[in-house]
């Protein structure tokens, strides 16, 4: 019975679309080409120039790229971004998965499951600035609640200036938002669980599998699609977002929390080096494109 879930949906995909169907794509394509691709292509072009936003553009050939590849700061920012990507993805996925599974487990108790579902979705409304401000306070080296807590439980020697110490700054930035139950990720997982056939659950309980085993071997496979989806969505969001870091540490101390997005922003608007900033963007794009192509190749192989 499980084999039906593993087989890729190969039937029905290979169909030639009618003109009418293709025309459904047109508005999307048009908008994307105009408002996304056109500006990005221009940006790519300008990455070969010295440009500060106005009319004057000086052709530099590959100079921006050479400067970029010889700048250690860029590699540091890439490394930081990688660490953030790996760790924070785990943080934003696993608790959401756990909570979704628990809420799903409550499906016989409708009131509770509705209640908890709301509890975890509503905080999505909280504006990011509020969360940042609060966490900045929590992490404060002097009067932050985290340090106070550590002292209260006699772990006073563990207190740090969390955001001000280059050794802990990156980790602190990653840890923000505890317990990291991402509302929309949770909803997607929940949808996955709820969509699974009832009969599957019953047959599994009959066969005498323990809860933990069931979770790892079966639950996760059943929502593998949603898992992959959430991982990609989370990664996309993480790559884009540097405003939080900008507010908390501005990439510091030193370069401890510098990420490519922030580097790009500063170069474009603080140093008026827009051509160089565009080069950063292009390199990022190429890196990510290659990674996603690589990822899908590996995905295809492991699927069978």
């Amino acid at each position: 019975m499980f084999s039906t879930f593993y087989k890729k949906r190969s039937i029905g995909i290979v169909r030639r679309p009618s003109i009418f169907v293709l025309s459904m794509l047109v508005p999307s394509l048009f908008l994307v080409l105009l408002f996304n691709y056109y500006p990005i292509l221009q940006s790519i072009t300008y990455s070969f120039f010295k440009w500060s936003g106005g009319h004057k553009k000086t052709f530099l050939g590959l100079k921006n790229y050479i400067d970029l590849f010889t700048s250690s700061v860029f590699y540091i920012s890439l490394y930081n971004q990688l660490v953030i990507l790996v760790l924070r993805t785990i943080f934003l996925i696993v608790p959401a998965l756990l909570v979704a599974r628990l809420i799903f487990g409550l499906k016989t108790w409708a009131k509770a499951s509705n209640f908890f579902r709301l509890i975890f979705v509503v905080p999505v409304v909280i504006p990011p600035i509020v969360v940042l401000l609060i966490w900045q306070f929590l992490l404060d080296g002097e009067i932050g609640l985290i340090n106070s807590f550590l002292q209260a439980v006699s772990l006073g020697n563990l207190t740090r200036a969390w955001l001000g110490d280059p050794k802990t700054a990156l980790g602190s930035v990653i840890a923000i938002g505890f317990p990291w139950v991402q509302g929309t990720n949770m909803l997607i997982f929940l949808a996955g669980f709820l969509a699974v056939d009832e009969s599957i659950w019953d047959s599994v309980t009959l066969e005498g599998v323990s809860s933990l085993q069931r979770f790892f071997y079966i639950d996760i496979h059943l929502i593998l699609g949603q898992l992959k989806l959430n991982i990609i969505l989370t990664i996309i969001q993480l790559m884009q977002d540097f405003v939080g870091i900008m507010v908390l540490t501005d990439g510091g101390p030193g370069t401890a929390t510098l990420v490519p997005g922030l580097l790009l922003y500063k170069n474009a608007f603080q140093y008026a080096k827009m051509g160089y900033a565009n080069a950063i963007g292009v390199v990022l794009f190429v890196v990510i494109l290659s990674l996603s192509i690589l990822n899908s190749r590996i995905g295809k192989e492991s699927n069978q």
């Binding site: 404060d140 080296g141 009067i143 110490d165």
Partner: peptide, 18 residues
């Protein structure tokens, strides 16, 4: 200096007498 002086400190430390 206060700990964490390299990234912004929590406001009010002086006002509170700390």
């Amino acid at each position: 200096f206060q700990r964490g002086f390299l990234t912004a400190p929590a406001t009010g430390l002086f006002n509170r007498g700390q």
